[in-house]
Amino acid sequence: MAVTGAILFLFVVGHLLGNLQIFDGASRLNAYGRLLHNLGELLWIVRAVLVVCVLLHIATAAQLAVRNWQARSVGYRRKRSINSTYAARTMYWSGPIVMAFVIFHLLEFTAGYIHPGSRFTEGDVYHNVVAGFRVWWVSAWYIVSITLLGFHLRHGIWSAFQSLGINHPRHTPVLKLGALWIAGLIVVGYISIPISVLLGWVR
């Protein structure tokens, strides 16, 4: 889970860097889109790796969830959390919601099956993005999901190190703080796009 999570995290970072080119104008973003498409087989390899990672990540999570659920067949009448982050306790919620979002997101911006607000134009990434985000509920759904992704990463980033056996009384607190910052930056980076579109900064 830590390994697949790390690969997916790299994708999240790369995807963000690509997307931020929207602020550089339509030609830059569309050129980036074409570049990716021209990668040919390589693109499909990357996509395949990502799909495998997603499937493995889900499979292990599901396996773990079933095990954990079975481990406490009778629940508590009252249970209080005293030392854990909201993010850590809600990995099983943030994960599937982010997954649902990713499917919607692919249908909307990659395949174009669902594209409320305007007509999906193959190749005109800039248009598709801007037009898509002008629909308020698309943006809202995007912002909520990205925030949940942030929560997921805030726990997942440092937890992956822990799962791989890396913990140090001096360095782990730094790592946890780093995870919070990275997750925060990623959320800010992603949601800057729909917000800019809604506010009319990007049109």
């Binding site: 005293i82 854990s84 799962s163």
Partner: peptide, 8 residues
């Protein structure tokens, strides 16, 4: 159950 580093 399995550990997910929650910390409780």
């Amino acid at each position: 159950g399995g550990c997910t580093n929650i910390g409780e």
